[in-house]
């Protein structure tokens, strides 16, 4: 067999792939490096450069001391805000999506296709289009500038996605299982709890990863519907860059960005492993 590893075509492919990878990685590398350089150093040399002195303190300052909009508590409170929005919204939207997906896939009822169609239609509406309606809703229910308001928005909007994903997973579950359980005497929720949910971990992990990263990284609603102390970390980062100082605080700001990106990274690292395991287990058959 011919050894293809050093063929010219292959080298070219590797070259192109490396270039693309570099294009993606350079901004991250710059941020990582800057998060470890002092602001003075960045100001005196350039935005791009190897740290002359490792400035680990940037992380501590970004976490707890840096001043954002007149409050000097770092991004810690905003990280907490993000967690308080993301975790409940992820859990609730995933569970509701699982129940809804189960209902439209395994409990056929008149009009089920319509309901499924309308729910998933939400996926195709641009976010900006929904801003105004949400403003009216939040005002009317009295949740403007609250974390609960954001939880509500993300839960309801997340349903389109979670229902779609769960439904597409559940249609592979044989109808006979549901029929058998009905003859056995189980009702809607008992069948869900005892039979469908135990088969669901692979899809639940996918939806949780998706929902978590999307809600955590979401910016528009956070910046529109909350101000000051109620903002999630994505919105607070903007306020942080606007902080006035003698010299631009690039080092600390980079550290703050790194901290803010950490949770989604961790979810991918840990969840991804379960995800693959769930897929290979082949739970249904």
């Amino acid at each position: 067999m011919r050894d293809t590893s050093f063929a010219p075509g292959r080298i070219l492919i590797y070259l192109i792939v490396s270039l693309i990878a570099a294009a993606y990685l350079v901004p991250i590398i710059v941020v990582v490096l800057n998060s470890l350089r002092t602001s003075e150093e960045i100001a005196q040399t350039s935005m791009i450069g190897w740290p002359q002195r490792w400035a680990w303190s940037n992380y501590g300052i970004a976490w707890a001391d840096f001043c954002v909009a007149q409050t000097c508590a770092g991004i810690r409170p905003y990280m907490l805000n993000s967690a308080l929005v993301t975790i409940p919204a992820t859990i609730i939207s995933t569970l509701l999506g699982a129940v809804a997906g189960y209902a439209v896939s395994l409990w056929r009822f008149p009009g089920d296709r319509w309901i499924y169609g309308i729910v998933t239609l939400g996926l195709f509406l641009p976010q900006q289009m929904r801003l105004l309606p949400w403003t009216i809703v939040l005002r009317d229910v009295g949740l403007i500038n609250t974390l609960s308001g954001l939880v509500m928005i993300h839960t309801i909007q997340g349903l389109s996605f979670t229902t779609l994903f769960c439904r597409n997973y559940y249609v592979a579950i044989p109808q006979e299982l549901i029929r058998a359980a009905r003859v056995d005497g189980a009702g809607f929720y008992r069948i869900f709890w005892r039979i469908v949910l135990p088969l669901s971990p692979p899809i639940l992990i996918v939806t949780v990863i998706w929902q978590f990263t999307h809600i955590w990284n979401e910016f528009l609603y956070g910046v529109t519907f909350t101000t000051g102390q109620q903002q999630p970390v994505t919105a607070a980062l903007i306020a942080l860059t606007a902080a006035v100082a003698d010299i631009p605080q690039y080092g600390v700001q980079s550290a703050a960005v790194m901290i803010a990106a950490l949770p989604t990274l961790l979810v991918y690292v840990f969840g991804g492993r379960y995800f693959v395991r769930g897929l290979t287990a082949g739970a249904v058959k």
Partner: peptide, 13 residues
């Protein structure tokens, strides 16, 4: 009581 073609045993039990 019913016996199904695919047996329809609950996989997680």
């Amino acid at each position: 009581a019913m016996v199904f073609q695919s047996y329809a045993l609950y996989p997680s039990m």
